[in-house]
Design a protein around this nucleic acid. Sequence first.
DNA 1: ACCTCCCGCCATGCT
DNA 2: AGCATGGCGGGAGGT
Length: 849
Amino acid sequence: MKTPLKESTAANIVLPEIQPDLGPLTTPTKPKESTQGEPWTPTANLKMLISAVSPEIRSRDQKRGLFDNRNGLPETKDCLHEHLSGDEYEKSQPSRKEKSLGLLCHKFLARYPNYPNPAVNNDICLDEVAEELNVERRRIYDIVNVLESLHMVSRLAKNRYTWHGRHNLTKTLGTLKIVGEENKYAEQIMMIKKKEYEQEFDFNKSYSIEDHIIKSSTGQNEHPDMCFVELPGVEFRAASVNSRKDKSLRVMSQKFVMLFLVSTPQIVSLEIAAKILIGEDHVEDLDKSKFKTKIRRLYDIANVLSSLELIKKVHVTEERGRKPAFKWTGPEISPNHSGISPIIPFAPSNLEVKQPSKENCAKNLFSTRGKPSFTRHPSLIKLVKSIESDRRKINSAPSSPIKTNKVESSQNSAAFPNKMAQLAAICKMQLEEQSSDSRKKVKIHLARSGHYKPVAPLDTPSNAELEMTAPSLIHPLGVVPLIPSPLSSAVPVILPQAPSGSSYAIYLQPAQAQTLTPPQGLSPTVCPIPSSETVGSKDSTDASGEKVANDTANSSVSTRPGSLLPGPERQGTKNLDREPTGERGSKRASTLEDSGSKKRFKEELKGLENVSTTLFPSGYLIPLTQCSSLGAESILSSKENSGTLSPNHRIYSSPITGVIPVTSSELTAVNFPSFHVTPLKLMVSPTSVAAVPVGNSTALTSSHPIPMQNPSSAIVNFTLQHLGLISPSMQVSASPGAGTIPMSPRIEGVSVAPENAGKQQGRGTKYDSPAPGQNQLNGQSVAVPGAQQPVPVTPKGSQLVAESFFRTPGGPTKLLGSPCMDFDGASKTSIGTLFVPQRKLEVSTEDVH
DNA sequence: ACCTCCCGCCATGCT
DNA sequence: AGCATGGCGGGAGGT
């Protein structure tokens, strides 16, 4: 209906004539390519690769002979188009697939290296890209928005974005995972699945309970709005952007990714994702139209993520039938809590079977299951820091891409995700980079040591061990973190990211918090609203961890009071300014009101902000950026804090790799600076706590995971294994060891129908386990621990931890006792992230079966 | 008939 | 006012 002719067509026709020069642009037929000879090739290659991945694309391309076209005379082609509607016609008309966002995204990605050299100018001009790719700008926005949500690009100014590539990807994913955990997405997924199940059978049954849960969790938590999570290194975009940040596509994209990172099987159906993203109180109630719209958007996002090879489409077979779903094919991210390291991509572990038992144990231990728990959640975390200032600066004016620097990796490596080998290579590269980076920092040595022996456990070895040995114990610890509900809201949480150094701050939208409140009542323990919570990160400037800590503390303090209520947050947000976040999200109309109020608040808040840091209103994650890392380093050097801090997270997570430990140490440093408030779940590990304490002066700390870096650790492990340094068995076997076994059996049951059978298969072996990383971690932790853990952690850490726990006012309350603990809480948080999710998954998955 | 999701109108909000 | 963004949903291509 709409336009009979598409732009492309028109463009093609017209352009050629008009601008012969732009050959590339012109290509009528295909939209795609533009061309410049050179780029072309690369692009083509990429495409080829991609196509390999997706058969569909491949076939199409082949048919068309896209490349050929180029080679051929453009003019001719044009003529053909005009002339021949028949043959060419076909070709010329791209057919929808050719115009697909996924393909477009591939083209887009082909233009830039996965690991760009920060030193180089990586600016992206949207107009140019649109022209070159021969698409509407609108499409480019779709792509860029998703990439932005992953911090692969950041907005510089009006028509400009800076390409970061995958340098920050691991961190981002780690952060998202944490946030996802805080939001209890895994739980939400389970609930939804449960409901569905039940509905199938008996409607009446669980229903009520589930609803409650969902409502509480969902509604309260965060979902609706969301907050945009920002990364440390990455700056905030232009003001205008900020204002809309919360916008759905970006936020939706992050949430969507969170779902994968949190769920055990790592397979998320569109239906569930849509429901969670909508935050429906009642799933059923959802408006159809709203649901449909959400689905549409999810497809858009999924296409981009697929192009990034982070997910792949599959079908989940349930009793009812097949449902479209997507499977995470990106790097495993290490666990959250621990922050350990990212996981290794492919680790293999097949722990699936075991997990259940673990889960059960966990549940029994911790929770009470029947209720939902929710606790918390939400989390938000805010950062403080200078970031704000940065943001503002950035706001309107395009800032220069300084940020990139932070990424340490200097090199640009082009990595190719696909293959294992590639991965390994990549890992190595990364490791090298990291190591180099770390070295720079000083801590390097730590990391190294960490690799093998030190292992994560070191810091929190005790914790880790405890967990390992006695899961139950762990939980409590994990619980501890909770701290915060009150705090959380107000306080910014800082996530430690170790290596990279950057931390993220998450902001939640205030609004949610407010709304949330009511719900709170529902679950007593639960934290009010996750969303509201914010995490604070430190500033880069604060480099010194201590300073940061102080600052944060201050900020936190100030915030705390407010934290309970949304108000404070709002204020914070206002500061952020841009972040008005959510507001708009809903739709313009509704938002207006909010915005107005928000603005007011903001102004008010601004004053507050000045004080210490700023809180960001919306829920964004703010990257501490390098600073954090720096701080960490410094810290490390100082050591006081350092040793211990990181552990917590790690603890949970990785038993396995010593790597983790290392990371943790680094992390610790990071941690210092920031606080975390972990609202949710908390899992904080003691270590984290410990870290906090340092900074904490006032603030509470919760632990938090530090996600980001983990990757590095993961990588390290991975590499080590490859190298033979570490016995692979460790990882693999590891699973068993720990009691926790990650994998949920059911997962297996799930039928995933990969579109590409082959691929999937591959994954099976490799990744197979849906949540390899997690699983592994668990397993690792268990198994490994023995070996690695042995390494004693620095005592300090433990002490710190203890302190932190105690200190945190809020935190403690939640601890175990709180309902949150229930199953999810318990498992998730602490150790479990791995476990819990799995269970959840299982449940959900079961459906699949 | 359902799944995907392209396309572009038009609101939003910065300049 | 103009322009950049991007929410949104109609409705079409694919299967």
